[in-house]
């Protein structure tokens, strides 16, 4: 009897969660996008890095790369213009909701392996730029593997509770009194390039410890990767300065003369080396002086 009651309560809970609305209204976006700006933002934001199965020889943005987490394996989505398996039948408003709110067109939450939390402040213009850039990607008519998580993590509606507890606003708001370059770096580091996604420790539920472990590193990343602490103090202790750090984001060269491998190698190879020198310097300027950390 007790078991039946629990099952009924559980089913009722899931149904309740399914009906619980989390989407914010999406206004129509009529701005004209800039393909170049969108492609640049896509690079900086890691879209190509995560949604291209390099190891498996996959086509760009066709998804399929697996992220092995402690909860199971999540596969990156096909973001090409294919209408069947990609985002070819989406509207720009669907796209905006996915990027800024982490929700499918049907308002189902994405798993937080997708770093939408950092994109919440993207402007309508940035969304329009990204959108037109993604329209240039040739369709790839291939499905990606089905995400393989055990119950209860397989219930995406349960993520609504997760979002209520662990979805934080990005720290991208400019700080008065800081230089333009510092604020530009803050917008990139805390937003698009989402450094904290890997470099911040996570709790047992996979939420970032934004108050106690921010930028303090993470030894348990998908794929067995580890990310070191990148607080300003830790970076100074490891021999970094603005010049060497910005140069590393271009070349991968560390102060020791070694070059990045692992996850950071991917970040540079697939992302930051495509950025402008000014933006890499801005990122380094902010990282070396996270004065409000």
């Amino acid at each position: 009897m007790g078991v039946v009651a629990l099952m009924v309560a559980g089913a009722g809970g899931i149904t309740g969660l399914r009906l619980y609305p989390v989407a914010n209204p999406v206004e129509a976006i009529t701005l004209i996008g800039d393909v170049g700006a969108g492609a640049y933002l896509a690079r900086a934001s890691g879209c190509i890095a995560c949604h291209t199965n390099v190891e498996g020889g996959g086509l760009p943005l066709a998804g399929g790369a697996g992220f092995e987490t402690q909860f199971g394996t999540v596969y990156a989505a096909n973001l090409t213009t294919d209408p069947e398996f990609g985002i070819g039948d989406w509207s720009i408003e669907d796209f905006a909701k996915a990027v800024r709110q982490g929700l499918t067109p049907d308002d189902v939450p994405y798993y937080p392996v997708f770093t939408y939390a950092f994109y919440q402040d993207f402007s309508d213009q940035q969304i329009a730029d990204l959108w037109v850039a993604f329209q240039t990607v040739a369709p790839v008519n291939e499905p990606v593997p089905i995400t393989d998580l055990a119950f209860p993590f397989s219930e995406r509606d349960g993520l609504k509770l997760w979002r209520a507890a662990f979805l934080h606003a990005p720290r991208t708001t400019p700080v008065s009194g800081q230089s333009d370059i510092w604020n530009r770096g803050r917008a990139l580091v805390e937003g698009a390039t989402h450094c904290a996604a890997c470099h911040t420790e996570r709790n047992i539920a996979g939420g970032r410890k934004v108050y106690t472990g921010r930028m303090e590193g993470n030894d348990v990343l998908p794929g067995g990767f580890k990310a070191p602490a990148i607080t300003s103090t830790a970076l100074v202790a490891s021999g970094w300065d603005v010049d060497s750090l910005s140069y590393a984001l271009q070349t991968g060269i560390m102060p020791s003369g070694d070059t990045f491998g692992g996850g950071m190698g991917e970040v540079v190879q697939m992302g930051t080396r495509f950025m402008t020198q000014e933006d890499r310097i801005a990122m380094a300027t902010y990282l070396m002086d996270q004065s409000d950390e």
């Binding site: 070349t251 990045f260 491998g261 190698g265 540079v268």
Partner: peptide
């Protein structure tokens, strides 16, 4: 020099 370092990093990655 930058591109040769990127080759090193690609290999390490």
């Amino acid at each position: 020099f930058a591109q040769s370092a990127q080759v090193c990093s690609a290999c390490h990655t």
